[in-house]
Simulated assay, not measured.
Amino acid sequence: MLTIENLHASVADKPILKGISLSLNPGEVHAIMGPNGSGKSTLSYVLGGRPGYEVTEGSVTLDERDLLGMGADERAAAGLFLGFQYPVEIPGVSNVQFLRTALNAQRRARGEPEMSAGDFLRLAREQADALGISMEMMKRNVNVGFSGGEKKRNEMVQMGIIDPRLAVLDETDSGLDIDALRVVAEGINRIMRKPDKAVLLITHYQRLLDLVVPDFVHVLAEGRIVRSGGPELAHQLEREGYSEIAA
């Protein structure tokens, strides 16, 4: 599904990614772990198409299509969802308005009919109920006045409505208490644990991986993947830290 080959990228002329190669197949969850400054968020931003991140070498394909040649909106229409470590607030735009506009823009790009207001509200209510978000919150401005946990749950509602093929989740467990972490993990499993979908889960902590058990764990250090393994690698990192493994 996703194939990254020898990916190099820079920010403000500073090299950050220095030759990443990685493949995700449908039905798989891959976790990326690593110390601060290793390039984890840069990788997610490059995949999402954030401006200011320059790819200097390598290739990325999604379902055999050149991902790097697409704009951010085209990547979303192709099935990529990017979850942010710090979801942004959008004053003046309600969740419902934002999500219906986004969903129908993607449906148009794929040649599908737009979803009616009634069908969309039923879908939004179903996804919001599953994540413990009230419809009153869905009518509020996007993330404005939300707690950290509410922002992350709201992002899972967005993912459930958009229904992507590939989710790239950048430290989606950041700032969550135990209960919110469990709700978000259940959302990831419910929405994305399917044979035609895949997840690239970026995290610092093994606790999320007890709830969303990955097929593979990769350690990123100084812009390169220096170690790969199964779920047991996350437990080793929790015990020993990065210094030995990423050396």
Rank of each mutant, 00 (worst) to 15 (best):
G49S: 03
A221C: 14
M137D: 07
S116W: 15
I20H: 09
Q158I: 01
L220T: 01
N143L: 06
L220G: 08
R122L: 15
R239M: 13
K151F: 13
A12E: 11
A246L: 10
R207D: 06
V157H: 13
H204W: 07
I202Q: 04
T3S: 08
L68Q: 06
P51I: 05
R227S: 04
D73L: 06
V96E: 15
A246M: 11
E5T: 12
V29Y: 12
T172F: 09
G52C: 09
M70E: 11
R125A: 15
D170E: 05
L200N: 03
G118Q: 13
P87M: 05
E126H: 15
A198D: 01
L2M: 11
S23R: 12
S94M: 05
P51S: 04
E57A: 15
S228F: 10
H218I: 01
F120D: 08
T101F: 09
I20G: 07
D66K: 10
V60E: 10
L166K: 09
V142G: 15
S23T: 12
S116H: 08
M1Q: 00
G58W: 15
L166A: 12
Y53Q: 13
G145D: 00
V219E: 00
P164D: 00
S94C: 07
Q206N: 12
P231N: 00
I161T: 08
I90G: 13
R75F: 02
R182T: 01
I191N: 11
L103Q: 12
E150A: 00
R182V: 03
V184M: 12
D173R: 05
G92N: 10
L82Q: 08
G229P: 04
A130W: 14
G229H: 11
Q206Y: 07
A109V: 00
A246G: 00
E238K: 11
S228C: 06
A124V: 02
L67R: 11
A247G: 11
I32H: 14
V88S: 14
I16N: 04
S23M: 02
V46C: 13
E74P: 03
P91K: 09
G145P: 03
G145E: 00
S228I: 04
R125P: 00
D210L: 05
A105L: 10
H30A: 07
E64S: 15
A185P: 02
A109Y: 04
G27S: 02
N104E: 06
E89Y: 09
A234G: 07
Q206I: 11
N189R: 14
D13E: 14
G34S: 01
R207G: 02
L47F: 09
V55K: 14
A167Y: 13
L103T: 03
M159L: 15
E244R: 11
V46R: 12
G241W: 05
A102I: 03
V157I: 05
K14F: 01
A234Y: 03
S94I: 07
A128I: 00
G230N: 06
E57C: 07
T172G: 13
A77Q: 03
I32K: 13
N154E: 04
S174Y: 03
A167K: 08
L200H: 12
R140T: 04
I162T: 14
A167L: 04
H235E: 15
F146P: 12
Q206D: 14
E57V: 01
V184G: 04
G79E: 03
E155H: 13
